[in-house]
Design a protein around this nucleic acid. Structure first.
Lengths: 220, 220
DNA sequence: TGATAAATGTACTAACCGGTTCAATTGGTC
DNA sequence: GACCAATTGAACCGGTTAGTACATTTATCA
């Protein structure tokens, strides 16, 4: 981390500093993530981000061009993370029903553990995914989860456990919907129903219900 | 609708106008809804809203106090609407499984038909439901759907069709999650998977899958 | 060691934007 | 028809905010 400002003696222009491009970049990205997640794109303030950084606003524009460039970088980082999570899934050796259960639970837990990602996706949806579209990371591996799901599903059909005729992508999206909701709508549900979906007890209940819903849908 | 501005002859101060408080209010609310839904709270511009109105910015502040007051009014209006939708449900005469099917389909369709509501709820969740909390309309009937769900569920248990032990609220939330997702995440899903969840065919598929998931969960 | 490129800090600005001031006009009421 | 409250218009303002100009320091490498 750079140490650019001599906290005492306002007179001294600045203490000497060591260059650390990667550190500065990371620092900015971490702060920016928190701010965008909390305030959205238009709600976040570049000056606030800069202030919470060990560096200055100048660096934000130096590395990321403009506010949207910074936002895009944060967004890409988050999608990179979930992609690597998806790649880490190894369910081909499990029985179909058990594999679906594990996939569902892992997805469910991932969203609970990464509320920042969920909120960022919400923000991006408000913007009609405009920045995702403008990002490089789209064409890349976009659907490893769908492949995982497809393989499990097909094994399940072959074993006579699942009914045929469903789209693997739709199955994935059902799991996603039920997992994301707990985080994305926690606030309004909490307010309207006086119910916190994210207490350990509520989560345990909702997790098993989610598995039941997905399996129930597959069994038809 | 007021007709405040004489489009020709910039010299003329203003043509005469007739008072229409309710009309002006409605006009502002409609424009504001579109703007907030499209740009979020911080993204929306009061000047833009005013420009698209038949009246002036002055009226916004006259009737709604400030930008957040206007936002709150829009939000409340939308919750009023969905509450009346919920009240219109009359499912107590149907067999439990058919009632759940109808409830699920009606909820599903409501969200498809009211994307503005879905987007507004998203925006409000980004703000941690702060404005919903600050609103009057909270303490009112907050859970008529949950009551509907509870009655169906209990009848289903009594008939030996549904497994016991579930929370009616959780059932409602499952239906809600699967219904909202199609609209709320349409953009990112479309971008990441190249899949539009809202084509008629996709919707038909997802609708029946949603019913299957909910019924599957209830049957256990 | 000296030249060049990369990285960083400071101070500034121009536009934007939520909100206000001041005054005028309307419509009901006695 | 005169008075008063409700309603509306036009111009304006001060703080905020994204973005920049310019100078300076650090690292690289021949």
């Amino acid at each position: 981390m750079t140490n650019p400002v001599d906290s005492r003696s306002g007179k001294r222009r600045q203490a000497s500093w060591t260059q650390d491009p990667e550190g500065v970049r990371r620092d900015i990205l971490e702060v920016a993530r928190a701010e965008f997640v909390e305030n959205g794109l238009s709600g976040a303030r570049v000056d606030d981000i800069a202030a919470k950084t060990a560096t200055s606003k100048r660096m934000i524009y130096y590395y990321f061009g403009d506010k949207e460039g910074l936002y895009r970088a944060v967004l890409e980082g988050m999608y990179d993370r979930i992609r690597s999570f998806e790649r880490s899934l190894d369910l081909d050796t499990l029985a179909p029903e058990e594999a679906i259960r594990r996939l569902t639970e892992a997805t469910f837990d991932y969203h609970i553990d990464n509320p920042d990602f969920v909120r960022m996706v919400m923000v991006e949806n408000v913007h009609h995914a405009r920045h995702l579209r403008a990002s490089r990371t789209i064409a890349d591996l976009n659907s490893s989860v769908v492949d995982v799901t497809r393989r499990i599903y097909e094994r399940g059909i072959a074993a006579g456990l699942f009914r045929p005729g469903l789209e693997p992508l739709d199955i994935s999206l059902t799991i996603s919907a039920l997992s994301i909701y707990n985080v994305s709508h926690r606030a309004t549900v909490g307010q309207v129903f006086g119910y916190d979906m994210c207490t350990p007890e509520a989560l345990a209940r909702r997790r098993s219900m989610t598995v039941a819903a997905v399996l129930g849908m597959l069994r038809g």
